[in-house]
Each structure stands twice: as structure tokens, then as C-alpha cells.
């Protein structure tokens, strides 16, 4: 992976439920929206591919300049990173106070994801 990375979890209807910039290099001001644009646009590809493959992990499905998009589709890198985040996400889903599809605000989730990112990316 490159020096900078952005991790987004998207629920149905394109709603990003969790976002984290997990890069090492201090990001530029416009990196945030640039990453969002790239990831958002990559969803089009995901939408196409999700029907053609049974694999959950789609490596490097899209690229923009030097940024590569990998996707882990849960009931839709490192595959292990995505898997562990998936587990975290399921734990979040089990929380009765969490409304599925809404934004994840838990700080615990955030720290866990960042720790995983440090470990794997």
C-alpha cells in the first residue's frame, strides 16, 4: 500500500457509515475529499463486479493515478485487515442501540480500526 490510505465503510444507498484516514504521511488539505471521490466512484465498479464474482475480497478493482482501490464486499491489501474490520462491524451491528445503516460514531470502533490499519497496512 501507499503511504496514505483511506478506509471507508459504506452501507446500502451509498451512505458512508464509517470513515478513517489511516495514512502515515501528513495528508494534504484536499486529500479527504479526493479520497472520497475516488472511493465513491469506485463503487460503480463494485456494483458491476459484485454480481460477477463470489469473492468477498476484490483486490485493486479500480485505480486513480497512484491510488488503488481494494474492496471487501460483506454479505459484502490485506484481506486480513478487511476481515477483522468485518468482525468489528458485526460486533457493532449487535449493539442494540446502533441503527443499521447509520453512521458509526463509536470511538472504540475508531481506535480498533486504526490499530488494525497500523498492523496490516
Amino acid at each position: 500500500m501507499g503511504s496514505t490510505a483511506c478506509f471507508v465503510m459504506v452501507s446500502k444507498n451509498d451512505i458512508p457509515i464509517y470513515e478513517a484516514e489511516v495514512g502515515i504521511v501528513p495528508k494534504k488539505e484536499d486529500a479527504a475529499h479526493q479520497h472520497q471521490f475516488i472511493l465513491h466512484a469506485a463503487l460503480d465498479i463494485v456494483q458491476d463486479l459484485a454480481w460477477t464474482t463470489s469473492a468477498m475480497f476484490l483486490k485493486a478493482i479500480d485505480r486513480f493515478n497512484d491510488l488503488v482501490v481494494s474492496v471487501y464486499v460483506t454479505a459484502v491489501l490485506c484481506a486480513s485487515f478487511f476481515q477483522e474490520v468485518h468482525e468489528l462491524y458485526i460486533k457493532t451491528l449487535l449493539n442494540p442501540l446502533y441503527l443499521p445503516g447509520s453512521r458509526i460514531t463509536s470511538s472504540h470502533f475508531d481506535t480498533k480500526v486504526r490499530a488494525l490499519a497500523r498492523k496490516y497496512l
Binding site: 451509498d14 471521490f37 475516488i38 465513491h40 466512484a41 469506485a42 463503487l43 460503480d44 465498479i45 456494483q47 458491476d48
Partner: peptide, 18 residues
């Protein structure tokens, strides 16, 4: 082109317009 592809790839359309 993204717009007129089938199915339309609206997100790509938007991104490239931007």
C-alpha cells in the same frame, strides 16, 4: 461515457465531471 454506459455509472460520471 460513464453516464451512457449500461448500467449508468453515475458515481464515475460525477467524479470525472468534477
Amino acid at each position: 461515457c460513464y453516464l451512457f454506459s449500461s448500467p449508468p455509472m453515475l458515481r464515475k460520471y460525477g467524479f470525472h465531471l468534477v
